[in-house]
Amino acid sequence: MNSRLAKFAIGQVVRHRIFPFRGVVFDVDPVFANTEEWWQSIPEDIRPTKDQPFYHLLAENDDNSYVAYVSEQNLLPDDSGEPVGHPQTSVIFESFDHGLYKLRPRISH
């Protein structure tokens, strides 16, 4: 599989192209890195290719918050300028400014 550079950045707010949810990117896989069972569970007519970046999102819809794993082809930039209401955003990110989240510094030794 060939991988390519990710179109979206960590901290960027995005929305799903098909389903009514949005989220903030907190990690990126250069190509599909989930289980075959997960990939096969996606309806074939909308199943994405594996050779593209996949994004881990702190996601939300009108009903709840959750973690989503989404292919690049199914994401669009969210231009609302609004923060994501997911309760874990404050754990991973320290601030939200001009439509972007800033990661908290990592503690290491």
Rank of each mutant, 00 (worst) to 15 (best):
R4I: 05
L100H: 14
V28S: 04
H98W: 08
H16G: 01
V25I: 15
R104I: 03
G81N: 05
S80D: 02
D78Y: 13
L103R: 15
N64H: 14
V24S: 05
V24A: 07
K50E: 07
I92M: 13
I107A: 13
E82A: 13
S41G: 12
L5I: 10
F96C: 03
L57G: 00
F19G: 00
I18P: 01
W39N: 04
H86R: 11
N2F: 03
K50N: 00
G99H: 11
I46N: 08
T35Q: 12
V13L: 03
R22I: 10
N2R: 10
V24Q: 06
P43W: 11
E44M: 06
N2W: 02
A33Y: 11
A68S: 08
R22A: 02
P20E: 10
T49C: 08
Q73P: 00
L5A: 15
H86D: 09
N34K: 04
N34E: 14
F26M: 01
G81C: 02
R4A: 01
R104D: 09
I18T: 15
P83E: 04
G81D: 04
N74R: 00
L76Q: 13
D97L: 06
W38I: 11
S95H: 09
F93D: 07
N64A: 14
P87Q: 03
L100V: 12
L76Y: 06
L75R: 01
Y55N: 10
P87V: 08
N61H: 08
V24P: 08
R15P: 01
P77H: 03
D97H: 11
R17I: 06
H86P: 08
P105S: 03
H56V: 00
N2A: 06
N61V: 04
D45P: 05
H16I: 03
R47N: 07
E94D: 13
E60L: 02
I92S: 05
V14I: 09
N2D: 02
L5R: 15
E36P: 02
Q52S: 03
V28H: 09
F32E: 01
L57T: 02
S80G: 13
R22C: 08
A33M: 04
Y101R: 14
N64E: 15
D45L: 07
A6P: 11
L100E: 07
L57E: 01
G81L: 04
S41L: 10
N34C: 12
I92E: 01
G23K: 07
V14R: 03
D78T: 10
F8N: 10
D79I: 12
P48T: 07
V24K: 11
S3D: 12
P48Y: 01
F8S: 04
H16W: 11
L103I: 10
T49H: 10
F54C: 00
S108C: 13
F93N: 09
Q73C: 06
I107E: 14
